[in-house]
C-alpha cells in the first residue's frame, strides 16, 4: 500500500457490503461518519474514554475512534442506524424511549451499541453486568439509572 495514496477497504456495515477508498490514516469513526454518512457515530473525546463513538465490530463493542479504518477490513460493523428493521425500532431502542433513558441524546447511540453488544452475547445480564458493559459510556444527563432500567426491561420482556 502506498503512502499518501488512498487504500481500498472492504467491510460490511449494517448488513450492506462496502468497497471504498480511504486514507491510510482514517479512523473507523471518520469513515463511518464522514464517508458513509452514519452520523449516529459521534466523536465525543477522540481518546477512547467517552464511548460516544461505540460501534459493534464482529460482535464486540469497540470505540471507533481508536480503530484504524483499515483494521475493519472484512469485518461486520453495526451502528445505531442498523438497529432499525423495516422501519421499526429495535426492542432496545423502544425500551430506551419508554424508560426515559434519553435526555440530550448525545451519548445514546454509543450507549445503545454497548448495550446491544452485551445482549447479543448475554441475553439475560444481571445489573452488575449491565453496568460493567456501559462503564466506558459517559452520560452527563441521565445518571445512568434509566439506561440500566431500559436494558433490564428488554431482558424481562
Amino acid at each position: 500500500m502506498e503512502g499518501g495514496n488512498q487504500v481500498e477497504l472492504n467491510m460490511i456495515v449494517n448488513g450492506k457490503k462496502h468497497n471504498i477508498d480511504i486514507n491510510p490514516s482514517d479512523r473507523l469513526l471518520d469513515v463511518l461518519r464522514d464517508q458513509l454518512g452514519l452520523t449516529s457515530v459521534k466523536e465525543g473525546c477522540g481518546e477512547g474514554e467517552c464511548g460516544a463513538c461505540t460501534v459493534i465490530m464482529n460482535g464486540d463493542a469497540v470505540n471507533s475512534c481508536t480503530v484504524l479504518a483499515i483494521q475493519a477490513r472484512n469485518k461486520e460493523i453495526i451502528t445505531t442506524e442498523g438497529l432499525e428493521k423495516n422501519g421499526e425500532l429495535d426492542e432496545l431502542q423502544k425500551s430506551f424511549i419508554r424508560n426515559g433513558a434519553i435526555q440530550c441524546g448525545f451519548c445514546t447511540p454509543g450507549m445503545l451499541m454497548s448495550c446491544k453488544a452485551l445482549l447479543m452475547k448475554n441475553p439475560y445480564p444481571k445489573e452488575e453486568e449491565i453496568r460493567r458493559a456501559i462503564e466506558g459510556n459517559l452520560c452527563r444527563c441521565t445518571g445512568y439509572t434509566n439506561i440500566v432500567k431500559a436494558v433490564k426491561d428488554v431482558v424481562i420482556r
Binding site: G3, S25, G46, N63, T66, V67, L68
Partner: peptide
C-alpha cells in the same frame, strides 16, 4: 506496531506520535 490501537491511534490523533509507517 499496531495491535488494538487503543494507545497508538489516540497518540497519533493527539499528535504525540508521527509514524511514517504503521505495521498492522
Amino acid at each position: 506496531l499496531l495491535g488494538g490501537g487503543t494507545d497508538l491511534i489516540i497518540n497519533i490523533n493527539n499528535k504525540k506520535l508521527y509514524p511514517n509507517t504503521i505495521i498492522d
